[in-house]
Design a protein around this nucleic acid. Structure first.
Lengths: 101, 101
DNA sequence: TTATTATATAGATAATTATCGATTTGTCAA
DNA sequence: TTGACAAATCGATAATTATCTATATAATAA
């Protein structure tokens, strides 16, 4: 039982881009190659690689080489940990399971 | 019972700055004037006002004028809602109350 | 080996944003 | 009123970052 420690500034910066959130959405519950992501979006391949690097540095995706391809998938656990950390730091009075009103 | 809807890109962008997170930390459970925030940080007053505006546009702080001063306080509920929204969008397999490991 | 495909990196540029000093606006007291 | 203080806005600059083209690296097949 180890606590995942998240730097909330780095976490938020990694999330703070529309293209990255689209990428995250795409590989949320599946492994996708870089090219599949490129085809799903409207940006050049190096741009996608750039964003994947940022997401990987923030531990928000993990990569696995499969032959010529590299498959990326969202690291949901780390993402959830980041959300929790932000909520704990900045919303101590609102346990996150009670936000809906 | 109304659901708070959060644009997760705007939410993340508002969080994605160290100075803003310091401001959020400062006025997390209390009302602070702009000057009090300026004194607690190492940035100029217009810079603080700039960040407060961004936080306010993202609904992360609310402001209340009190004589000459304007008191800011963190909107914890909206912050928690943003965290939930991000977690729901990107970590459906990890209910956020079960993240610790 | 060489050719082909997939991805990453390098370098340049454009866009965004953080910061500051100067000024304006708002509030109140004398 | 006027003066003083608090905060917001303006305009300029610096720093960061997103994007692209061109090229390099990696893996595989012929």
């Amino acid at each position: 039982m180890k606590l995942i420690v998240v730097n909330t500034v780095d976490f938020a910066k990694a999330l703070a881009d529309e293209t990255r959130q689209k990428i995250m959405q795409l590989c949320c519950c599946q492994q996708l190659s870089v090219n599949e992501i490129v085809e799903a979006l409207d940006v050049a391949q190096p741009t996608v690689s750039h964003h994947l690097k940022i997401l990987k540095n923030a531990d928000l995706v993990s990569a696995e080489r499969r032959g010529k391809q590299v498959l990326y998938t969202l690291n949901q656990k780390h993402l959830a940990a980041g959300c929790c950390q932000v909520a704990e730091n900045f919303a101590p009075e609102y346990p996150i399971e009670e936000v809906r009103e």
